[in-house]
């Protein structure tokens, strides 16, 4: 599951708040199961947000980040365009969601 909070509309120059959460275990690779076997690491490595194709926010994730990572950040609305939120895990699997921002 992915949860996004982004405004549908904004006025040019306005600062908008963007929030993104993804369901992911962020398994550290340091834990063991009940049989003593290491639970393999399984983490998201990268988050990226683009606005009209330009990167406006990017982050690299490490094993110390809690499960279901949640990010809040801000951007300046300049033109009507797509905002894309994407996550890529350590195996290269990628999840993404888009929201159209209409700027007047």
């Amino acid at each position: 599951m992915i949860r996004i909070s982004a405004p549908d509309t904004a006025t040019a120059g306005e600062i908008i708040e963007l929030k993104a959460m993804i369901q992911h275990p962020m398994e550290t690779g340091y834990r063991r199961d009940s049989k003593g076997e290491t639970i393999p690491r399984n983490i998201i490595k990268q988050f990226r947000c683009t606005y009209d194709g330009n990167i406006i926010f990017e982050g690299e994730f490490f094993p110390g980040i809690a499960a279901n990572p949640f990010l809040t950040f801000h951007a300046r609305a300049t033109r009507t365009a797509m905002i894309e939120f994407s996550w890529t895990d350590q195996h290269g699997e990628r999840w993404s969601e888009e929201r159209l921002l209409t700027v007047s």
Binding site: R3, K19, M21, Q23, A67
Partner: peptide
């Protein structure tokens, strides 16, 4: 929004 329980509600 921040409450991660809503991932399951959704």
């Amino acid at each position: 929004f921040a409450n991660p329980g809503f991932l399951w509600v959704d």
